[in-house]
């Protein structure tokens, strides 16, 4: 008798929902391959970070309660983003410190919530994937995943099982790319210095593709690489792990589907 499939609610994240649904489908494929039953509650919109980090606690709490409700019945909640997963896991309980009833619900959700890649390795005990990507890639550790959730070795471990892929480390993999949600539009000049420093080190690795686990950071770095004329491709790490690299890379033109063959 096999164990029953865990029921996973996919927290799509607003950026994946709007800009790059293929990351969501890659997450579904990985989760199903790892033995999960995946559902996508319609009642989700965003984790509330834009409001939370702008000091708007009332809206953040309303959104958090909505997320708590939408994901009430799942064994696990999984997000293809360290930042959104950390918002639910680490910050939702902070929102209800003085309300025991809501706090209990937030903590209960927190315990069931994971970032996608670390969920696959740490909870589902996945140690390799069925995928091929004949390229040299480099990997950026997004800040929230790295420092709030301890996601560092997990993506590297799964990437090492991808056929023909070779990983070259970034010298500043753990330093912020300058995205920071609304930071990048509130302080564009400073954000630009940060992302310029980051894309400089990405280019110096000689990698053909840049990977990371958060779409916000990826869009920031892709946008800067493209503005500066680089042809380095940028993808969410889940796309490579799920062997779903036939879509154009982030910000790449229609029809530009070069992937492993390039």
């Amino acid at each position: 008798m096999s164990k029953p499939e865990p029921r996973v609610g996919l927290f799509v994240t607003c950026l994946v929902d709007l800009f790059r649904p293929s990351v969501g489908f890659a997450a579904v494929k990985l989760l199903e391959a790892a033995g999960c039953r995946v559902e996508v509650p319609e009642l989700q919109t965003c984790c509330g970070q834009p409001a939370y980090n702008s000091g708007d606690k009332a809206d953040t709490r309303a959104i958090a309660l909505q997320v708590i409700e939408a994901f009430r019945d799942f064994d696990y909640v999984v997000a293809p983003s360290g930042s959104c997963a950390a918002m639910i896991k680490k910050h939702y309980p902070e929102l209800f410190e003085k309300e025991p009833e809501q706090l209990a619900k937030a903590e209960e959700l927190s315990a069931r919530t994971f970032e996608l890649i670390s969920f696959l390795t740490d909870v589902m005990q996945l140690s390799d994937v069925e995928a091929a990507f004949p390229q040299t890639v480099t990997y950026h550790d997004s800040c929230s995943g790295l420092r709030e959730l301890g996601v560092r070795d997990q993506p590297r471990k799964l990437l090492s099982s991808v056929n023909a892929l070779s990983l070259v480390e970034l010298s500043d993999a753990d330093i912020c790319c300058g995205f920071g949600g609304t930071f990048c539009v509130k302080y564009p000049d400073i954000s630009n210095i940060m992302v310029t420093s980051k894309t400089g080190s990405i280019e110096s690795t000689g990698a053909q593709t840049l990977l990371a686990g958060d779409l916000g950071c990826l869009m920031n770095m892709a946008g800067k690489l493209q503005r500066s004329g680089s042809d380095i491709q940028v993808r969410h790490v889940a796309e490579v792990l799920a062997d779903m690299t036939d879509t154009p890379a982030i910000g790449a033109a229609e029809g530009d589907t070069r992937n492993g063959g390039n």
Partner: peptide, 17 residues
């Protein structure tokens, strides 16, 4: 604020939902 220094990746089309 975004496009002053970087390109904005276009969305793929329909939303995931």
């Amino acid at each position: 604020g975004w496009t002053k220094y970087r390109d904005l990746p276009a969305p793929q089309g329909k939303t995931f939902q």
